[in-house]
Design a protein around this nucleic acid. Sequence first.
DNA 1: CGTTATGTTCGATG
DNA 2: GCATCGAACATAAC
Length: 261
Amino acid sequence: MPELPEVETYRRYLEANVLGRQIAVVPHIDNSMVRHADPLALVAQLEGSHISSTHRHGKLLFANLSRGGHLVMHFGMTGDLKCHPPGEEPRHARLVLDFETGDSMTYVCQRKFGYLSLADDPEEFVSALGWGPDALNGLDETVFAAGLASTRTPIKAVLMDQRRWAGIGNLYADEALFQAHIAPTVPGNELGPRRRRRLFSAIKEVLRTAVSRGANFDAYPDGYLLTARVPNAPCTNCGASLSATKVGGRTTIYCPRCQRR
DNA sequence: CGTTATGTTCGATG
DNA sequence: GCATCGAACATAAC
């Protein structure tokens, strides 16, 4: 579940359920998931801390720890957060926090493509990764235009490149291109000002809408590709059969009739 | 058995 | 340096 809207939903979940509650003990951690930090140091910072605030940049979530530092969470393709009674950890638990108040919260990551870390400063961590501004809160049209103008790479691959701007993955790239009526294979530098503006607006609109619905696909508006993103399904816009292909190495679903080159 | 999966990185090649 | 392609990571579902 982990593109920008999903991670923003996790952030709000932390704010609503975990903020200010002291972590008594960390009964389980998968050391192989910890990057750029010492697992023992991470546990040491977690135990006795409470989360005092949260921050998100692209697909990265940061939890400010009261004893110092930030717990960093990346969710890969299969990450999730879940509160539950102590001792009832979900499958594929990679980090479990037991709170003094009684229950627990688990970071789950089935495929282990995500990672955990400990950072002094969130924005320093982000810039060390070389990532661009947050696609929802930090990306402006000037940067967007410059990012497209400088490359012949297919627009979909450009949208997913975290070094240009952070947070858009395979599904929301398809959705934004669908809403903007732009074919995924168009080279970035072939989009004129008009279509570029339409795409910029579509990105913001799609991300805002997804966040406001808690990244729940079932709650997305009629006409969203993500409500029926299946090869050969009828386009919600024109009824044509949706095509499937690969762009940027990822499965891509689009309408060959309404999305123009 | 083979294929696919909401992510990212690295190496080979042109 | 840039772009493209494929493989790799680890695990499950169909």
